[in-house]
Design a protein around this nucleic acid. Structure first.
Lengths: 339, 339
DNA sequence: TGACATGATCGAAACGTTTAGATTAGCGTT
DNA sequence: AACGCTAATCTAAACGTTTCGATCATGTCA
């Protein structure tokens, strides 16, 4: 900018005024300055600007795994929304690890991000501190965090799983295997509650040997399914509370020589693009990814636009059961007692 | 930092020296400073540091669509690699649009990213300028860019498709539909060359009505497939040069009442996690995503580590044909003349 | 014609770091 | 006792912006 000012024989203040339109500058000088900018190929240094202004027009986004199709979609939507608003997005993957998440949030804050969208957080100490100190606005996604009071958008996980399990019960299934992630994060907890709730509502016992938990990855789903299928009284249906793990489930079913839905019915959480073109077409609980991403982005953009003092807003969205052909009716259909 | 210095009754220079270890500071002062840092909860401002140092420890990454599973995986790998190295990653999606890409690269450069990984670029004017002016190191991914001479990692697209088409020919297919993206970017061009090459090598004619191009999206694949299937002499196999488009292909086949592989064989570019658990299990050309991401990251990290003057390095990786059951043998198997 | 508002421009401080060079104190040599 | 050397610390400039307040010319009104 100094060079531009010199070339145009004006002060840097005038150049700044012209660029930002913060003051009127005469047509004559305007032209000289614009010419100089072109000649020199001047580009404003956003870092210096950020330092002075205290804002970076950058937000931080952390998710557990970008390869989980739910997060892939959400990241995509959020990225687009902020792109439109002129913000850059710094992306971090926490690998479901709390320490990693804290480190990354620290990294993002050091870099002075203007806001944060955090998906699937555990009870991160750092996060709690940030939100309490009200340094930058934070939006929580997909997960409620104990004692952290800030904008949040989550799914009604309990209801979604309740509906899915009830659907299986209505089909006549009585022994329904359930595969969950580690239950210390709220969606997993709530989904589990939905599972138990549906069984209880139908007057069915909750058999603990039918509930298996893993660490969100395909291999965990594989192992869990292997265990379920080798029970002497094996389940007639399996619900996987996590998308990557259901791949493991399908592989285990295949490897053990069974087939879906003939021998065993399968349903899972999170829809994916291929779900209705291949066989079996998986019955899934679809999250409204577009809405989730947009709402999260809007909440944060609203705060960034200056609406700092409004009380925390909690959005709870509904999942949708996508019924396809991976679950088969079992004997006589019994009506369950649904809420 | 000023507050810390005051609290510890030292100069800011001493604080800086301690934090960065750039000079020895006495145990006495060290302790006072560390105490002050804890008391105040001081965190170094990375923006001010960047301004002074001229480096942000941030890189820019642009891809066409993060929802394309190939890019999802590559982004994931790259993100991890830079995370390990202490770099932040700014992610942009170009939606296959050249102007968008130029805008985003400009945005990233304004923010003083230390380096750039650009995937699937067209002949972006901005990009050419950047690389030529040698401001920041750039690594090109998945795509060669005319006249831009910089580190690159690409797949041997021609060979990969050549092999896939040859496989179909070996199965007895003679009329093989081919669905491509817009052919102005090199992978699409090279894949097409592979297609034609395989047909020619087998002494088969290239029927232009069997080649359809779309704009990378599912709907384009759907439309293209509909056209191919309504030809009076329809193809016995379809190869889709892009992953999202093959979903459209499968849907079109289903909607028209045919089935794969019984009525029509299908293969495509880019593998995905579900490919071997559902029916039909798609035969695909798998790219070594892990290696591609890691190599790209390493090339850039190497430049960032100071190796600026080494001549541009071009890495060409091999695809792998994953043969599954979506392509069926057709009549007598004929040996093609393969290179 | 003097007072005054208006509009255009500029000088300089500030944002929070890093770092070169200056200063000071302590200590061993001669 | 004067000297130089080393180690520890500090002062101040710089990075590239934005912005407050000052300056100055010009036109308007009484």
């Amino acid at each position: 900018m100094l060079h531009v000012a010199e070339a145009a024989r004006v002060s840097v203040a005038t150049v700044s005024a012209l660029i930002n339109g913060t003051a009127t500058v005469s047509p004559e000088l305007s032209q000289r300055i614009e010419q100089a900018i072109r000649d020199i190929g001047y580009k404003r240094n956003a870092i210096a600007r950020s330092l002075k202004m205290g804002t970076t027009r950058t937000i931080g986004l952390t998710v557990p795994h970008i390869t989980n199709p739910f997060f892939t979609d959400v990241v995509s939507v959020i990225q687009q929304a902020f792109d439109r608003a002129g913000y850059a997005v710094m992306l971090c993957c926490t690998d479901e690890d709390l320490n990693t998440q804290d480190d990354q949030i620290r990294l993002l804050l050091d870099r002075m991000v203007d806001g944060l969208i955090v998906a699937r957080v555990g009870d991160g100490a750092i996060l709690k501190g940030i939100v309490d100190d009200a340094k930058v606005p934070v939006v929580l996604l997909d997960r409620i965090c104990e004692g952290v009071d800030t904008d949040t958008v989550v799914l009604d996980n309990e209801r979604a799983v309740f509906d899915a399990i009830t659907y299986l019960i209505d089909l006549g299934h009585r022994r329904i295997g359930y595969i969950t992630g580690t239950s210390d994060i709220s969606p997993m907890h709530d989904r589990m509650t939905g599972y138990r709730g549906a069984l209880e509502a139908a007057g069915l016992p909750v058999a603990e040997e039918l509930v298996r938990s893993g660490n969100f990855h395909e291999i965990d789903g594989y192992n869990a399914t292997m265990q379920l299928l080798s029970l002497h009284d094996r389940p007639s249906a399996i619900f996987s509370a996590n998308n990557p793990m259901v791949i493991g489930t399908m592989k285990a079913i295949r490897d053990i020589g069974l087939s879906c839905p003939e021998d065993i019915s399968v349903a899972c959480f999170d829809d994916f693009p291929w779900s209705d073109v291949f066989q079996p077409q998986l019955t899934t609980v679809a999250q409204p990814v577009q809405a989730i991403g947009e709402q999260a982005a809007n909440l944060l953009l609203d705060r960034l636009a200056g609406n700092r003092d409004a009380p925390p807003r909690k959005l709870v969205l509904k999942g949708r059961l996508m019924i396809r052909n991976s679950c088969r009716p079992l004997g006589a259909v019994v009506q369950s007692v649904s809420a």
